[in-house]
Write a protein that binds this DNA or RNA. Structure first.
Lengths: 349, 349
DNA sequence: TTGTAGGCGTTATCAA
DNA sequence: TTGATAACGCCTACAA
């Protein structure tokens, strides 16, 4: 027996109030079958009257579809991942998906299986994996495992056969930065890299090296120091670099924070920027334009990356649902752009 | 008839494989009723064998509980909201909740009702409302509306009778900053405020004014300019301030980005910081320690705010589920702390 | 155009 | 300790 109190209103209540069957209410709601104008009006009135809200759990149960995307991310304390998340949210909302968010707090050790299982258990329609590739934390990715998961799209990782990836071209970004420094007449261009366990850090370093070699320069070990993305490590990095190569007249840091640390060292040593030392960063964090001097940097279109990921995922979900054979997963790579500001302009000295 | 292909394994499959009933499998899984050791072993074996994963939709349907928290947030491009989100995620995970994320991209105009309805329809157990209070965008909050929603906790807003709020003490933060400047012997302390539609901006300005008046100083209008949180507006702000009060020897900006803009103006004008002008910010973004000079600022414990929100929400959910009368909602306010760095140290001139 | 019956995958109740 | 049965709230055939 139903007590009126403490009873959430269901589709049956609406049906009763509108003098129709539950099925008809459902049809009026989903529009999957025609409903007479008059009855639809009564139904809508009843819905408004009772304050009915369809239970998406029940709906998902029968539809085998939840309109939900699971997003696994890490490093939200950095600028990049947050931008990507914003892009994901925007696209997801416009396609009618909800977002189930799961942050990995230590992306090298977190229990990936547990996360995946939970997402599966919640029956998300698809997954966006926005966890940085560090060390072997992408080891779990293989066809066997993926086959037992909903469609999944990866962000910023080493392309791999059989998986859908949305990338940014880190090599190109580094090349733009380095070439720009060459064009400004810089002769000794150092690099403060990210941690070498990070795929992106290796790519950026590769771009720097390639460009130097292609220009007939050398890229010896003493021109590279490894940072950990923090401004503190950028600071330490530039000190070390200057020790190893006092004639350094330019430095390309693998992110803006480390570049900021480098700027600080220059100030402290009384080295003028860009006069005696040119500095270029990577990421274009909002603050970069207001550093002193303002920072030349590389901009990635991260929120586009997020948006693209959702679109690709949506396509995968749809083709799977229609039972069609899924086309081979693709890699999409977006090009970054160089943003030139004060910190790198003009000839040395 | 069931075809083996294309059939997700259910609890019934497990039951059959383990020669027990579905109910028993359920009991083994949830531990809500005792199950003989021998049968439990068989069940677990079958689960592993079949790769069974409970369907949380179905479970949620009957339990009337989804172990999900809806998080509505805005301004993720800023440092603060992201920190809060991280804190929320951490606490939620440890309490066994999933996070359904919904970002408002223009928090003044977005359709709040649509968001709330969607969350309700998905049957989240509770909601965390982390949308900045701007203008009248919190107008919808009233007892009548809240009564038709799951338990909800608000972040950083003007306390209001009948709603649970987790706050940071913005007035106190501004007081700490301003008092510090007074103690350093500064005589003319200006303020670059946030947009006055923002509650937090008004609070910080209030703290600044109070402190000056209590110290027997004046806080005339020409000592305040309104920014929009961006570094650009901080830049414009300081120019204006200096025009109005050439004798300005300190400025308190309502966030670190605007402080950064102010630093830039000082450099450009050749004004030494802190010698001729002391600068204090608010937020303690990671870059602040590496500005030139490093920035004195106010640190809020935002990830604690997020964690507390989850805990409070959890408590609300539990008492509601046990049918107990919910105790009157409370306001919890965390104290910020002043972080002193180079930009404010020492006497003027 | 509408109604009826059955099922989506679990858990809770009541017996056994 | 275990098994049958009836919900949970919705959608989809099939009939009418």
């Amino acid at each position: 027996m139903k007590t009126l109190s403490q009873h959430r209103v269901t589709i049956v209540d609406v049906a009763r109030a509108a003098h129709v069957s539950a099925g008809t209410v459902s049809n009026a709601l989903t529009g999957k079958r025609p409903v007479a104008e008059a009855t639809r009006a009564r139904i809508l009135a009843a819905i408004a009257d009772l304050g009915y809200q369809p239970n998406l759990l029940a709906r998902g149960l029968v539809n085998r579809r939840t309109q939900t995307i699971g997003v696994v991310a890490s490093g939200l304390e950095y600028y990049g991942p947050t931008r990507a998340l914003i892009g994901i949210d925007r696209a997801a909302t416009s396609l009618g998906y909800g977002l189930l968010l799961d942050l990995l707090h230590s992306p090298m050790e977190d229990d990936v299986e547990a996360v995946l299982n939970l997402l599966s258990a919640r029956r998300v329609d698809g997954i966006i994996w926005a966890v940085h590739e560090i060390g072997h934390n992408h080891r779990w990715i293989n066809e066997e495992r993926l086959s037992r998961l909903p469609p999944i799209v990866f962000l910023t990782m080493q392309p791999q056969p059989g998986v859908a990836v949305i990338n940014t071209d880190n090599v190109l970004g580094a090349r733009l930065a380095t070439r720009h420094l060459l064009e400004q007449g810089r002769r000794v261009i150092g690099h403060i890299s990210g941690p070498q366990e990070w795929w992106e850090a290796r790519e950026r370093q590769r771009g720097w090296r390639q460009t130097l070699l292609e220009a007939g320069r050398e890229a010896p070990e003493e021109l590279v120091v490894e940072g950990n993305w923090s401004a503190a490590s950028g600071e330490a990095g530039l000190y070390r670099l200057l020790e190893q190569r006092p004639d350094l007249d330019a430095v390309f840091a693998a992110n803006d924070q480390m570049a900021l640390g480098a700027l600080r060292v220059a100030h402290r040593l009384g080295k003028t920027v860009p006069g005696e030392l040119a500095v270029v960063g990577y990421d274009n964090i909002p603050e970069a334009a207001y550093f002193w001097p303002s920072l030349t940097t590389v901009r990635q279109h991260l929120s586009d990356v997020g948006g693209l990921a959702v679109q690709s995922l949506h396509a995968l979900v749809e083709t799977k649902r229609n039972g069609k054979e899924t086309p081979p997963p693709t890699v999409q790579t977006l090009s970054p752009e160089l943003i030139v500001r004060e910190s790198s302009l003009g000839q040395a000295h």
